[in-house]
Design a protein around this nucleic acid. Structure first.
Lengths: 181, 181
DNA sequence: GTCTGCATGTAAGTCGTTACATGATTAG
DNA sequence: CTAATCATGTAACGACTTACATGCAGAC
């Protein structure tokens, strides 16, 4: 009971382990780097950050830009936070719960005309093709900007997962479209 | 506001569109056929079934086995239910929200030793290999048992998705293991 | 006799999204 | 001047899992 399952806390800690950030910046980092396998929303990040401070996993410093009235809270991970992160990283990963609405609709495809199913597949194909080119840009940027970062090796692994899977999806789309045509 | 997002109702209707089932049987069907891209739990299915009856999308008939005291409620989809299902099937599919804990841990992999990351990958490889052989069995059974079903074509499409993606995952596992060794 | 599978359902609690509310700063 | 971006946070709601509660039937 009381099983903790939310991984928002560790996502936050993992990003703060790279360098200190504000909540808003953490959100941006997620959007531009982990979004294809891990997303978080506003309503989760800010409470998680507050919780991290409460638990002693991070410290918060109000670091307003030169004479600015704008509130800017920069969070820094603590030793305790790093320790908690490491422990979590070494624990077995929970299997992802996959819920793919497209596949569900195709599974029930016999209830509607072939065209409807083709429409879904064509849309999917288009999206997947766009994804493919996005990945290419991301990969180049990553290699250029983090050439000497010790993180690069790991970031490329997760990126390659996206690239490989996306290519497979594209092949599947094409085959399925052919099968229905 | 009040945006409906649960697709449990349609999952239930889609399965009832194949043939009448009890709640328990629906759960079994999901476990053995859509589980790799769509799962549902007990606590969702029974309320959804009750809701379907209330909405006029399905009828319920208590069909106890010969003089048995066992309660057995067989649900049948109605014309209204089929119509609702068709409408939903034709609407655009929502993009899946992916949350892959393994990738998240690898993304932060630099915080722990290489061995920890390798362990995750080796475990993943093993699981993926098992999945691969499971798919083979499922595919053979499917072709054998539903040779003349109009659903077969669609079921194979969703199965092929699983097969293709799993093969890609395996290739990725192997490459990543090599990259870290 | 006991374990597994069939069968139904509810309650509690967590997780997460969306929308709202507020306001400063910068680019056009 | 106005739109976008930076920046923080909360409230409400919906979705989903897990655990619980109950009991019949068949196999061994």
């Amino acid at each position: 009971m009381m099983k903790e399952k939310s991984r928002t806390k560790y996502t936050v800690l993992g990003i703060l382990a790279i360098e200190p950030f504000t909540g808003y910046e953490i959100l941006k980092v997620i959007e531009t780097s982990t979004n294809h396998f891990w997303s978080e929303s506003e309503g989760q990040i800010y409470p998680a950050l507050a919780q991290c401070v409460k638990d002693g996993y991070a410290t918060c410093k109000q670091d307003n830009l030169k004479d600015s009235k704008r509130i800017r809270k920069v969070y820094t991970i603590t030793t305790k936070g790093r320790k908690a992160l490491k422990e979590w990283l070494q624990k077995q990963a929970q299997p992802p719960l996959v819920r793919n609405e497209l596949l569900l609709k195709l599974f029930f495809g016999n209830n509607v005309g072939e065209q409807s199913n083709l429409d879904h597949l064509l849309k999917c194909k288009k999206e997947v093709e766009e994804e493919c080119s996005t990945y290419k840009v991301i990969k180049e940027d990553l290699i250029k900007n983090y050439k000497n970062s010790p993180h690069l090796k790991y970031w490329l692994i997760t990126l390659d997962y996206g690239i490989k899977l996306t290519k497979s999806k594209l092949a599947w789309c094409k085959e399925s479209i052919k099968a229905l045509s």
